[in-house]
């Protein structure tokens, strides 16, 4: 395995200026969604919490255990062994197939804000020294919606895992298919599902980790097709959004509806795992399956 890592390292060092600009994201400093200052109010329990402690605590509120939404880069930091991640699939450019007003500007804006190409990154990584392919959706990039580029990159990540004969772990966080790209986004659902199928036919493991929020076209495609489906506590998981359901049935939804624990009870999630134990759980599962491969 060391050889493989070395090859990747060499290749990374050889890459041109474009690649160099992109690797910046690997060394980005930690940023957190809600709070900016040293002490902030937790949006759930309304207690004042020390943000530095929260960041050290894997972005979980120490008081109430609320799992904050996190950026893909932070997710990477708390999940994989340091310095093992090699990003793949650079250089995709999102186009505007339906000539929507303002769509290009929106994408450019998000690119600048998040320093990401698109709402999904993937690459080679090790989790407690177990090699795997890891893919992470970023809900900060246009709600992590799946357009042509995200669909293509998800498909590519499965193909890369097939090529390397590695398992794949995908963290989903998405509002669904991207409306601005219309029918092309819809077709990504079929494309990514087929990627899961091909990867699965090779006898390889696919673990999907559903994080807050996973809805719409992503739930109805690759997110729900994992061999093992994990979820973070209190994550929203569903096909239709809560607001749409409320409008349809004309009544308030019960407390905890469509949350991770609810989905576990209904039998659509294998296990709800606290973020603090997620890395251990993943590496255990990957190790258990390594013997069989």
């Amino acid at each position: 395995m060391n050889n493989l890592v070395k090859t990747f390292e060499n290749r990374r060092n050889l890459k041109s200026k474009y690649k160099k600009a992109r690797t910046i994201s690997n060394t980005l400093s930690s940023k957190i969604d809600v709070p900016k200052g040293l002490y902030e109010q937790c949006p759930t329990c309304k207690e004042t919490v020390n943000m530095k402690n929260t960041v050290d605590n894997k972005f979980i509120c120490k008081n109430c255990g609320e799992h904050f939404r996190i950026r893909s880069i932070d997710r990477l930091k708390i999940t994989v062994d340091s310095d093992t991640f090699v990003e793949k699939g650079h250089g995709y450019i999102t186009l505007n197939p339906l000539f929507q007003d303002g769509y290009e500007e929106k994408i450019a804006d998000y690119k600048e804000k998040t320093l990401l190409d698109e709402a999904y990154i993937y690459g080679y990584a090790e989790i407690n020294s177990v090699p795997t392919v890891i893919g992470i959706m970023d809900s900060y990039f246009l709600m992590g919606s799946m357009g042509s580029v995200v669909g293509e990159k998800v498909t590519k990540s499965f193909e890369y895992a097939m090529y390397k004969k590695l398992p794949i772990v995908i963290f989903t966080a998405s509002g669904g298919a991207r409306m601005q790209e219309g029918i092309f986004s819809l077709m990504q659902m079929a494309k990514t599902s087929q990627a899961v199928l091909k990867h699965s036919n090779m006898g390889l493991l696919y673990i999907s980790v559903l994080t807050h929020p996973t809805t719409g076209g992503v739930t109805a495609s690759f997110a729900m097709l994992g061999d093992i489906i994990l979820a973070e506590p209190n994550a929203l998981i569903g096909f239709a959004g809560p607001r749409v359901i409320e409008q349809t049935i004309n009544q308030k939804l019960p407390e905890g509806f469509q949350r991770a624990e609810f989905m576990e009870e209904k039998g659509f999630v294998d296990k709800v795992v606290n973020r603090l134990e997620l890395k251990e759980t993943l590496s255990n599962l990957l190790t258990l399956h390594r013997r069989n491969q």
């Binding site: 890459k15 041109s16 474009y18 690649k19 650079h90 250089g91 995709y92 450019i93 999102t94 186009l95 197939p97 357009g147 042509s148 580029v149 669909g151 293509e152 498909t155 790209e181 092309f184 077709m187 990504q188 079929a190 494309k191 087929q194």
Partner: peptide, 12 residues
Amino acid sequence: YRKFGFFQRFNY
């Protein structure tokens, strides 16, 4: 279905 999608790739 593999071919569906509308994007460009900048091949570094």
